[in-house]
Design a protein around this nucleic acid. Sequence first.
DNA 1: CGCTTTTGACCTGCGC
DNA 2: GCGCAGGTCAAAAGCG
Length: 468
Amino acid sequence: MEKGWGLDLENSDRVGFFGGKSVFEYSSNRISSIFPVDSSGRGEHPAAHIGEVDFFSEKKEVVKKEIRDLNVNTGLQLLTARDRSTVDDVSSDAEDRRSKIELGLIQVELERMKAENQRLKGMVTHISNDCTTLQMHLHSLMQHQQNDTQLHQIVERKSEEKGVVLVPRQFLELNKEMNDEQSGSSSDERTLSGNKRVERDGSEGSAPIKSPKPADPLPEATMRKARVSVRARSEAPMISDGCQWRKYGQKMAKGNPCPRAYYRCTMAVGCPVRKQVQRCAEDRTILITTYEGNHSHPLPPAAMSMASTTSAAASMLLSGSMPSADGGIMNPGFLTRTMLPCSSNMAAISASAPFPTITLDLTESPSLQRPDPHFQLPFAPPTPPPFHQVFGQVIQNQSQFSGLQMSPDKSEPSYADRLSAATAAITSDPTFTAALAAAISSILGGSQPNSDGDVNNAVVNTNDKNTQ
DNA sequence: CGCTTTTGACCTGCGC
DNA sequence: GCGCAGGTCAAAAGCG
């Protein structure tokens, strides 16, 4: 697939992304028809499918006949001059009447178009809802699959290495985290310091994560959480990522005059996701946001991309870095070059940081532009783009290359990783959202406020419901 | 009144 | 052991 996991609405639908549901076929700026695609790929008229009747067609014929009657010409020229003036009046009246009728006709047409617009809007909403449901289902499946696959891999590797453990503790923790989230256990106390606190309190079971059993061969130093750090230019105090956050602390960090703020996700009680927000010391227009953890609750569409991509990035980071005591199989440089060949300075993986952290530098917008010539990111400084769009694109690039270029004999990304990355790509793919936005714009007859034709902005306005 | 933000205190890990 | 820095808590203050 040349565009990676990108979905092209015109083509991809035929391979069954929507199954047997209705899809849009659009050309240039207008939707020419909406045909439900059956299993053979052929369509039928929507009216036949939906049972809709065109109530205006008969009325239109009547009006047209009326207009034809008005134009009867005997050709006899039997009028006097006076009569002619009268006839002129009559003709003028007829003209007025005809205009009125034409006006009525236009109004009727307008009403018909409005009704059709309503119907199409309903269909778009329906499809959009289906898409959202699909995304959430996929995300859920992905997490299940990831758990199974990672556990399986860990067991496999352990047996293969015959005691030489190469699986980083991060893997286990990530896995445990996911399991905990799915089992619905309270996860508020599972973050780094939370673990410490749990250990201190001794209130969560007999085996806190931080306390290795005596026989545990895993190195303590690797038991850390992955973090995804994002650098983006923004005047706003926080970047928009679709989630709701509550500030729980603020600290002055060493070497930076700007305070660091600590937020936790408040979309669900006990959601373990936290983030730190801090301005860059060198350039205070740059906002550095660091995410940690996975959401333990359903997410709105706007946040799905971010959550999926964060999870994918963390997962890829943990599975790809595979740190070992003697330097690891893949060094950060390799990862960076491999995963993000489009911009060597856009992402960096920190091995020396207290936590394995992948940093995405989104401050250089040109590097974010897709190779695809007709794609362009919709934002212009200083207003930052919605985070999930940009981040999704970045991770999409990562997923493509991590899937294609990692050599099979060296830390091949697991199926779970690829699935996770694919999910991220699908949920964040601007091609799909752009096509959807184009369809909506077409249906609404270009009445969107987005007059410059930038469909991505329409998506932004539609999806970006961040409440911050 | 309930929720959010602020802010000082506290805890832990780490380096010396 | 001590000091420092990062991270979190929780009471107080602010706000709608």
